[in-house]
Nucleic acid binder design. Structure first.
Lengths: 191, 191
DNA sequence: GATTCGAATTGATCTACATCAAGGCGCTTA
DNA sequence: TAAGCGCCTTGATGTAGATCAATTCGAATC
């Protein structure tokens, strides 16, 4: 389990042995059942979670409807940057789409890590940069592509999302209603 | 001029004297006339620009129409993260909306800075994090607010954009056509 | 001062997707 | 086995904003 974590981190930034010695004890194992919240709207986010197994999502509520912002699967990290960094109440919630096994580090220990390990600092910078690029790209996709195009790209590029996330969550992620997604799927399956 | 740069950087991360001694010589002064390109689509971005005076924007072309992604004014930094980091040809262009006076550092020197100054590394991490939060927030605004709401928020929160950027660029930034923006402005001025 | 050309406005029409309302289908829980 | 309840689908209608086409305005150039 910890090897999975090490592998995921080293794919971004190589670490020294002493850095692992410092870091690994900070990551605590925890489990969440499907539907449970890793972070609730209005609470300050003070954790970064590594997903060993399962699926989680960030979402927000708007006019009594959930809007999914992003989905996360095994071998990736989930947190709410905005709240984690600003220490302000989160505008977003994180919940388990499937039962989740996590290795989680809290904000205080993360800061210790950044202050005492230059490679973790580099790791943090890279993660933020990649996230930034990813989010910009998603922005552009939303502007440039039609709803059916966005759906087809999701099917092609992120099959895990299609296979493991309920359609109504996918609909809001694509920026459309469940009804619209249903019709798009019908059209696509015809041709 | 260099004091403006120092001030902008120190508002994010304090630096030591030796770090300034290393960094400041890396920043070269340059000027761009309105309409000139700081970065062209298809070229690799290898600069980060600090705007001393003027206004620049990142945009891309889609179906023979420009879509503005963001506007930048004096005392802020402009670059195209995606291309700068991946070293791949940029999907986006950067041009001068007004005549620009810049202090620019190239990618090689930036890497030297990150490798030899822990505070610049922290600075880089923070900038990426703030950018990430800003971009996510913009995403959400696009989904949650109607076009008139987005327009009114821009008027209120970023008057510089309204005062110094042509309307057709603002329209594409808001995700609508110039015609739609014109009608929204008429409606708003009535009430 | 006349000319020009892009920017902005205005009007008429079209369309993608939302909204509202009603079923059906498949899980869970008893 | 049945009851109940989300989830997904389907149909009818509504609407925000796009598109197309034509002026008008305004700043730069000669």
């Amino acid at each position: 389990m910890y090897n999975r974590l090490k592998g995921a981190i080293e794919s971004v930034q190589k670490m020294e042995a002493h850095e692992w010695a410092l870091a690994l004890p900070f990551f605590e194992y925890q489990e969440f059942k499907k539907g449970e919240h890793l972070l609730q709207t209005g609470k300050v986010c003070n954790k970064v979670h590594f997903i060993v197994e399962g699926c989680a999502r960030i979402y927000f509520s708007h006019e009594s409807r959930d809007v999914s912002r992003q989905f996360f699967f095994e071998d990736s990290f989930v947190t709410e940057f905005g709240s984690l960094i600003s220490k302000q109440p989160s505008l977003y919630a994180i919940d388990a789409v499937e039962d989740c096994k996590l290795l989680s580090i809290n904000a205080e220990n993360l800061d210790i890590l950044y202050d005492n390990s230059i490679n973790f600092l580099k790791f943090g910078k890279r993660i933020a940069e990649y996230t930034c690029i990813f989010v910009v790209n998603r922005n552009v996709e939303m502007v440039v592509r039609s709803a059916p195009e966005r759906y087809l790209r999701l099917v092609k590029e992120r099959p895990k999302v299609m296979n493991r996330v309920p359609l109504h969550m996918i609909a809001s992620y694509l920026g459309i209603t469940p009804e619209a997604l249903s019709r798009i799927r019908k059209d696509v399956s015809k041709s």
